[in-house]
Amino acid sequence: MSTTRRFRCDDLLKFNNVNLDVLTETYNMPFYLQYLTTWPEYFLIKESPDGTPMGYIMGKAEGQKELWHGHVTAVTVAPEYRRLGVAKQLMDSLETVSENVYNAFFVDLFVRVSNTLAINMYNAFGYSVYRRVLGYYSGEEDAFDMRKALPRDTDKKSVVPLSHPIMPEDLEW
């Protein structure tokens, strides 16, 4: 039970319960403001009935032609609200926006290769590893670029795995 709504500036003052989690980075203001003012449909927060932030998702749409896609920049859930399907609901919302609002071909995200729990979770949400990006995380760890095709990609071309890993500088975005 929660309320999903667009993230508002004021939430920046209240999202500590989520952001104090060690794996959730607190970025500088321009980062949040950029997402808020550019892709407001893609920046969603979930609140519990008492108004406590449970988690949020940040995303954007980018790419030309068949690479036009929704991107999950960050999705995070406060520890006490895990295992309730919050992340799933947030991801669903982002996919819906990508499909219905932005008419994208697919949704993608990056995840540390060591984060098996998250990878399993994304698998369960229908994402598959498209390619491996070497040294994506400050040169220290590789990332999986995971994708999920949307209905516009009728042949599911976007998710055919790439046979070889790539370097971060080869990323299109």
């Binding site: 203001m29 403001l33 003012t37 550019t38």
Partner: peptide, 28 residues
């Protein structure tokens, strides 16, 4: 730095046509 950033992003909001967010950032 926030003061500069919010001013900058009210402009971004206009550029992107997200007027309600521009007003919101200004209000914030």
């Amino acid at each position: 730095s926030c003061k500069n950033d919010t001013a900058e992003h009210v402009a971004t909001a206009f550029e992107r046509g997200n007027y309600s967010k521009g007003a919101e950032v200004d209000r914030f």
